[in-house]
């Protein structure tokens, strides 16, 4: 039983990893960021390229990916998203366009293929990242053999969640962000630089997605279209948990992951997936605002 719960925990942490960045951009800023999956994908490519060109292992790729995708998110907010606040459907369409651009940029190696150049690690094919030796194989805890890499993912997710919580609830930036979530106009009237804060928040969300990408690269193949399916799971978690609530996102990821593992082990994988979607539908029907939602005024 303990090993099943651990697998559920590991599924949860992967869901949370992707959803954490979304909880910040979608939850806090109200932007349906369809390019979030592509930020995860770019994070994974940072790990691939860092390994090939710098000889850096997975651990070193984590801060690197955070910086790269964070900077990209910052640029994206400055150039596109900033002009679309309050236009929910337009942000959806615009960020989806950016998602396709990013996918093609990797596939066409930033256009270098047209000049007959090939950068190892880019292109339409599958890539892989070697996992450092000490993260392979298993670790025995309470007489149970646990997958070390999954333990590592759980640990990183916990650290990132605590950090995100700290930023949102214990720093001046976080206070501004929360003020903007509640009421952007009022926050601006109180002297908060809404534009600047939004740029930084978006960069933070994108950076978190980049880190998720590096960790994903360790146990699956890396390809330009890997992000598309993940963004769906991410939104599922954020919406179930309640938009704007970090606690809700954490709880939803935990519940959905465990339900997935328990149903999959009792029945099979296909039912496991179906059970998760069923729970999401029920939650949205019964509690449209999600499991944890703050009261608006």
């Amino acid at each position: 039983m303990f090993d099943i719960l651990f697998i559920g925990l590991s599924l949860s942490s992967i869901l949370l990893l992707v959803a954490l960045g979304l909880a910040v951009t979608y939850g806090a800023m109200g932007i349906i960021n369809m390019a979030h999956g592509e930020m995860v994908m770019l994070g994974a490519y940072v790990a691939v390229l860092a390994n090939i060109w710098l000889g850096a292992n997975l651990l070193l790729a984590i801060p690197l990916a955070f910086v790269v995708t964070g900077a990209l998110g910052y640029a994206m907010e400055r150039m596109v998203v900033r002009r679309l606040y309050g236009r929910l459907l337009d942000t959806l369409l615009a960020t989806w366009g950016i998602a396709i651009l990013l996918q093609q940029a990797i596939r066409l190696e930033f256009g270098l293929v047209f000049f007959g150049l090939h950068v190892e690690g880019l292109g339409a094919g599958l890539q892989n990242v070697p996992v450092p030796g000490f993260l392979q194989a298993t670790l025995t805890v309470f007489g149970q053999e646990l997958n070390t890499y999954r333990l590592f993912i759980v640990a990183v997710t916990v650290v990132l969640t605590v950090l995100t919580w700290h930023v949102l609830y214990r720093t001046a930036l976080g206070m501004k962000v929360r003020a903007i979530i509640r009421n952007p106009q009022m926050a601006a009237a109180c002297g908060i630089d809404v534009r600047q804060t939004n740029s930084i928040t978006f960069a933070l969300g994108s950076g978190l997605a980049g880190v998720a990408g590096v960790l994903m690269a360790g146990f699956r193949s890396v390809s330009p279209d890997m992000g598309a399916t993940m963004v769906v799971d991410g939104f599922m978690v954020v919406v179930t948990g309640g938009v704007g609530s970090l606690l809700g996102t954490v709880a939803a990821a935990g519940i959905l992951g465990e339900i997935n593992a328990l149903t999959a082990i009792t029945f099979n994988e296909i039912t496991g997936r179906a059970a998760v979607l069923l729970v999401v539908i029920l939650v949205i029907l019964l509690k449209p605002a999600g499991l944890f939602s703050f009261k608006g005024r």
């Binding site: 090993d3 099943i4 697998i7 590991s10 599924l11 992967i14 997958n147 999954r150 146990f219 699956r220 193949s221 399916t229 997935n260 593992a261 999959a264 082990i265 099979n268 994988e269 296909i270 496991g272 997936r273």
Partner: peptide, 17 residues
Amino acid sequence: DEYLELGHSEWAVMVNK
């Protein structure tokens, strides 16, 4: 005799089985 969705990349449960 078990099946996983096409393109699925989460194998934790199956390998445990």
